[in-house]
Amino acid sequence: MEEKDSLPDMSFFLASSVHDMKNSLSLLSNRMEHFLGELTPDSFPGYEDLSQMLYETKRVNHNLIQLLALYKVGNHLYPFDPQPFLLNDFVHEMEAQCRPLLASRLIELETSCPDDLIWYFDEELVNGVIGQAINNASQYTRDRIRLSAAQVGDMLEIRVEDNGAGYPASMLQAIESEQRGISFGSGSTGLGLYFGRTVAAMHRNKGLHGRLRLENGGCYGGGCCILQLP
């Protein structure tokens, strides 16, 4: 028997245990949100810690979602099917999803979206990108986050902006040089960015494809994560 036969197919175990972990994390974050909703910072001394725990739990959950999605996309197992969505609904769903965390961190979320804007995208993937962007922003913002959607030229633009200090210049530079193919594996571009770019690139229409951009500035002068979809 060849040696490789005795090794289990790790990717299968990884993928299947990720489901399991996601289920547990889903219950965990749900209970935390529930408690945070019942408590106030004054009534419970551990309130801030609990809020931080929720952030970390959601972060891990986002990572797992992304790993699993990338695994499926890489193996052509992902049922990619862009559907038309009313952006207003999408923005409100994102808001509902993030509200407990943001409220517990005393962060104000502002949303902006035309009432009648409809666009085509894969909801789960885009939800993954934007959910993570808001989760990240909640860690680096001072006290405000803005989620907006608008049509810009031929593209839909979804922006997550904060009023924190913005991305460090070294990170933006590293991303830029990596995009130009100068340096690989700089370590500054993690899973999240790779996932976001993959998702953007999968969305195509009439010869155009989506893009993901990070920059500083925007409405609040902090970090901006911008997803553009054709």
């Binding site: 889903s26 049922p79 769903e93 999803q97």
Partner: peptide, 29 residues
């Protein structure tokens, strides 16, 4: 569902659910 996969979303058109919700869920969602 815990995830969107070919297995979970496959079904004849007349037998599709009204919606899929992917965990984690929240009340608002």
């Amino acid at each position: 569902t815990a995830e969107k996969s070919l297995e979970t979303v496959m079904g004849a058109l007349e037998y599709l659910p009204d919606s899929y919700l992917i965990k984690p869920l929240t009340t608002a969602l």
